[in-house]
């Protein structure tokens, strides 16, 4: 008896029958007449992102680069947070001194579970879908950092905001990301009588700071 892989591949070849010899030509013939890029200007793009983030239950702050530390302090205070975990590579000049920041350096998850929340950067944000895209670089942290704590505060720069899904995926692909998480609002479920409940297993609160210069 042949091994499973050989047998499955043989079954497939028998099943599909004759096909064009040039696979790459066949693939390239796929008609992609959908939108590949957005058309909104910068301001409209930010407005759309903000509206849709809010629509899915995220809090949104706007600030300038110079006022970023103050905005972080304000957002954290509004949620009653005094101590946030940060990725090891997060720029220290972002951080206000009214809050304690703990770099995420351990391997374990227990510390994250009893922490108050996480502050991170992101790789991109998508206006049309109200999504944050993380590629888990040193400023965004390991995946557990924005998963296990109950609160996620995310900094988004205007230049990172794109309008469409294809634009965002092109960005993370160009950066060679191996790990990607997209986040649209806090975790949610509608499993009980179709009533949308925010906050299941992921962070129950998500705030976004939009940095616009």
């Amino acid at each position: 008896m042949s091994d499973a892989k050989t047998e499955i591949l043989e079954r497939i070849r028998r099943a599909v029958g004759p096909r064009p010899p040039e696979r790459t030509v066949d693939y390239a013939a796929t008609e992609r007449h959908y939108r590949h890029s957005g058309t909104l200007d910068g301001a409209a793009r930010l407005d759309m992102l903000e509206e849709r983030l809010r629509d899915y239950g995220a809090g949104v702050y706007r600030t300038s680069r110079a006022d970023l530390p103050a905005a972080i302090a304000q957002a954290a205070a509004a949620r009653g947070k005094r101590r946030l975990t940060i990725p090891a590579g997060l720029p220290r000049e972002w951080l206000p001194d009214t809050i304690e920041f703990v770099p995420d350096e351990s391997d374990s998850y227990a510390g994250l579970d009893c922490g108050e929340g996480a502050l991170t950067a992101c790789a991109a944000a998508i206006a049309m879908t109200g999504s944050i895209v993380l590629a888990h670089s040193p400023t965004e942290g390991r995946r557990a950092l924005t998963l296990v704590p109950d609160y996620h505060l995310c900094v988004v720069f205007a230049a990172q905001v794109v309008e469409t899904v294809p634009e965002a995926l092109r960005r993370v692909a160009a950066a060679g990301a191996r790990l990607i998480t997209t986040i649209a609002g806090p975790s949610a479920t509608a499993d009980i009588e179709m009533i949308r409940i925010q906050g299941v297993h992921g962070p129950r609160r998500l705030d976004v700071i939009l940095v616009v210069d």
């Binding site: 049309m128 879908t129 999504s131 806090p186 949610a188």
Partner: peptide
């Protein structure tokens, strides 16, 4: 418009 999480 987008589900809360996608993991890749």
């Amino acid at each position: 418009r987008m589900n809360p999480y996608n993991s890749i």
